[in-house]
């Protein structure tokens, strides 16, 4: 099975089964989303029209094409419907969160890479462990901490730092905390694997030649860790743009994020066609970062060969 130079049915099967599975359950659904985004809502099952009816032959097909419309896109792109604002604010929130994640994650990854070899597996495990526990639980944990009568406010008031509880829950600050907290392992792991590979003799050489440690960091360590920075940043940025759970549970009613808008459009307004158009446009926004991410991943794996 699957050995090089072996010609047999097994070889094709190993490729064909996952290939066809992904075509049927990953690629085909996108085409359906695209198709429905060009349809109109209808009170029927399924709740959109037109339906492609091939029994009418070519006439049925052209008839179907003529009924397709870009109305949903016009609706989504209409400034007064707040979808544009949601795309914009999702991109801003995701960008700021990614920068915060880098600022928080880099020192941790750096410290881990400098730790004694024998300690590193344990440290690595401690970073991964929270990732294994439910995402929902980790977001939930912050509700109790950030609420007006929550532990953070209680603590700050007991210390006399503040007199009145801070408004933290249901604000954008809570969304940033939630994203940084939940995505931190995704940032630390690629950074760590890049920093761990770093050749320390380069730094010794720099020190011997009189280069101060800060300068050595910016001219040697940081540039060499850039693949890790890129991988970590993309791994956090892309899903954060479409994040739904965090803005829904920690954000306020005026926290606009496109994942939440899509969810609301689908579950509350029950418009399948508009939510499909939102999804198609979100995908268009993310296509460039996703392609870059794939190239980074591919290169990383080829390098490991």
């Amino acid at each position: 099975m699957a050995m090089a130079g072996e010609k047999g049915r097994g070889r094709y099967l190993v490729l064909a089964v996952p290939y066809l599975w992904l075509v049927a359950l990953f690629l085909a659904p996108f085409l359906i989303v695209f198709k429905i985004s060009l349809s109109q809502d209808a009170i029927a099952q399924p709740p959109y029209t037109p339906l492609l009816d091939l029994s009418d032959g070519w006439a049925g097909f052209t008839d179907y094409l003529s009924q397709l419309s870009f109305d949903n896109y016009a609706y989504v792109l209409d400034f007064s419907n707040e979808f544009i604002q949601a795309y914009g604010s999702s991109l801003i929130i995701a960008s700021i969160s990614t920068v915060l994640l880098l600022l928080v994650g880099y020192p941790i990854a750096y410290g881990m890479a400098r730790a004694p070899r024998s300690m590193q597996p344990t440290l690595l495990m401690l970073v991964i462990l929270p990732f294994w526990t439910s995402f929902l639980i980790r977001v939930y944990a912050w509700i109790g901490i950030l609420s007006p009568e929550g532990l953070l406010n209680q603590g700050l008031m007991a210390l006399g730092i503040i007199n009145e509880p801070l408004e933290l829950l249901n604000t954008d600050i809570a969304v940033y905390i939630g994203i940084v907290y939940s995505y931190l392992p995704f940032m630390v792991l690629p950074l760590y694997s890049a920093l761990e590979k770093l050749d320390l003799t380069l730094l010794e050489a720099a020190a011997d030649l009189g280069c101060p440690p800060t300068k050595a960091f910016w001219t040697i360590t940081f540039p060499l860790s850039l693949p890790g920075v890129a991988a970590g940043a993309l791994l956090c940025f892309i899903p954060a743009v479409g994040e739904f759970v965090i803005p829904d549970l920690l954000g306020g009613s005026n926290t606009l994020m496109i994942g939440k808008s899509l969810w609301t459009e689908f579950t509350v307004n029950r418009s399948w066609t508009v939510s499909s158009a939102v999804a198609v446009l979100l995908l268009l926004v993310l296509v460039v970062p996703i392609v870059i991410y794939q190239n980074v991943q591919q290169r990383e794996l080829e390098a490991g060969k």
């Binding site: 992904l22 990953f26 993309l234 892309i238 739904f244 899509l262 979100l282």
Partner: peptide
């Protein structure tokens, strides 16, 4: 093929969920 392997890793869940439902 490799695109279909890597894309779901970062694909926002709302998109994956909606597209599978519509399928």
């Amino acid at each position: 093929f490799s695109g279909m392997i890597y894309a779901p890793l970062v694909m926002p869940e709302v998109i994956t969920g909606l597209s599978l439902l519509l399928l």
